[in-house]
Design a protein around this nucleic acid. Sequence first.
DNA 1: CCTTAGTATTTAGCATTGCTAAGTGCTTTT
DNA 2: AAAAGCACTTAGCAATGCTAAATACTAAGG
Lengths: 124, 124
Amino acid sequence: MLNTKEVIIVEDRFTQQLKKGILEMLVLQLICEKPTYGYELLSRLKEQSQNRFVLKEGTLYPILYRLEDDGMISAQWQQGTGRVAPKKIYEATENGRQENVRRKRIWEEFSETVTGFLTGGDTK
Amino acid sequence: MLNTKEVIIVEDRFTQQLKKGILEMLVLQLICEKPTYGYELLSRLKEQSQNRFVLKEGTLYPILYRLEDDGMISAQWQQGTGRVAPKKIYEATENGRQENVRRKRIWEEFSETVTGFLTGGDTK
DNA sequence: CCTTAGTATTTAGCATTGCTAAGTGCTTTT
DNA sequence: AAAAGCACTTAGCAATGCTAAATACTAAGG
């Protein structure tokens, strides 16, 4: 591509609010799958969601710090190999894995309830 | 029931955050189904969700005001019939109905994406 | 050589939304 | 007389995602 600009999709308030809680869950899920560092998470989120979860750094890193503060993940700095900048590698703790399972269960039940609510009544 | 006290389920941060945006969507949906007033919405939410969306008034009314400010619903005071306190009846506007349809679409796609994300990778 | 883009992390400050808590006023039940 | 129910209002807090910008180093292009 000559022009690397991307189409900017202005997200409305609704869609933005839907993400509350979800992003942290997805990040935890990805780290449970395999140890990773922040910048890589950005691309994994983007790709695995078909461009639906395209985060800025300012969104992701605070999530990582929260998960770390809450004991869900642990971090260690990886030495800069050769000239590659050092990365902060995160991996899930035992607590984190349990919490991840719990959240998936809650999400499943929650989303089913909501969908049932919306389709049960039918606006017409 | 002699004792009307209910078991208090302390909700964790995660579950609370999941509701962001959702409650407003559900309220709009209910009003689209038929004109209603605030207090009745509380019970409809509670029943139709099998006790999963049990709101306090302080949560619901601000939602109604927002929906009204945004032109999704319109309100009119119903005269107090006899000795019954006057109620503020809300009904959906044309904009509200369109937005409701749009939100349902967004929710459907969103929830499928999230579920796919969580089941695709499998934490093992 | 200088500029742009890419990798990688950090931080400040704002907007939105749900929550608790409390208050008003009237009616019905105990 | 007190408690509980109906019905609406408001103040203030907590949590999370967003924008924007800064730092620092490497690689590529004109």
